[in-house]
Design a protein around this nucleic acid. Sequence first.
DNA 1: GATGTATACTCATTGATTGAGTATTGGCAG
DNA 2: CTGCCAATACTCAATCAATGAGTATACATC
Lengths: 183, 183
Amino acid sequence: MSPLIRQPLTVELALLGFLREGALHGYEIPRRLSDPAGLGEVWRLKQSHLYALLARLAEEGYLTSTLKAQETRPQRRQYRLTRVGRSTFTEWVQAPVARGRDVRLDFLTKFFFAEREGPQVAERLTTRQRAVCQDWLRQQQRQAEAARATRPFEWKVCQYRIGQIESMLTWLDLCEEAVPAAP
Amino acid sequence: MSPLIRQPLTVELALLGFLREGALHGYEIPRRLSDPAGLGEVWRLKQSHLYALLARLAEEGYLTSTLKAQETRPQRRQYRLTRVGRSTFTEWVQAPVARGRDVRLDFLTKFFFAEREGPQVAERLTTRQRAVCQDWLRQQQRQAEAARATRPFEWKVCQYRIGQIESMLTWLDLCEEAVPAAP
DNA sequence: GATGTATACTCATTGATTGAGTATTGGCAG
DNA sequence: CTGCCAATACTCAATCAATGAGTATACATC
């Protein structure tokens, strides 16, 4: 239970999402994870990697693990969210992604769980992410303007990013329409 | 000079691009790399990491290193492309990026060097990349269609990707316009 | 009774990445 | 003229993500 120094604890936090609805054992998670109707399209995670992540999440106090014997099968390790784990997850799932390169994986994952948490959560996430995207957009547009005449490569990089951000914004609109409006 | 088994030798190959125009020492590369008019906006590379990559490229036969004494300063290591290094780079720089997640870094890097190699190279790269993107697009559209009614999350993921790919295609058009037409 | 498969993990190793350290020289402020 | 800082040019040890391979048991089935 060190004071949680590890800054970037990004995607592994998402694993906590699978434990929201109750205790789980390690073997069950890849089953849910690989469902193509869910995150199976977005994530790939090797079994050994998963166990390593779970162990570290336990070490850092986000969840507890207890061994449960079964009559027939080999014993399994039950993972359960701690209070810290629960609140950290709730915070994580509503916080927008801060860097463009993380959208691909992180945002889609957040959105997946946010929808499961309820329409308010999903809407808050998309609203906040839209604000962040609009900041990015403004910043890239400024930079593109500055580079336009003198630095053609930098200008093209900016144009690329601007296109990606704009299409992300369009997509966010689509997502918000799809979420049933919060009361 | 092992038979180059390492499959993914991705971005580090780009380092060879800096050696195309002549021998270099390790310290010079981060200077060129961090130029914001060039790849400085796209890449971040720590010094120690850079040296590690150079060492491995040398180990794998893409370049040779020799120590050069200087009158005053400490001696430096001169890196020079081998024939294998030269041809590997030429191939790499013209090959389209195969996975969407690599576009952000890899494609922009390729394009940077391709422009330096000449308009034919840049045009070949963009043409091929466009073909790959169109494949992705078709595949995602098929998948979106299949997921539409029954798997809403999967459908959204597809829509996200479709948007990104479409905006990439628009950007590729922009790039080709900017490249002076090959004779 | 042999073979395969689902359950449920563990472990050793690789390999990317980083922070910190080292050594030398030139310039310049005091 | 000396003390200190910045620039040059790397090296090294440690960390940590990620993977492949291995282990052990039970149930099914042929």
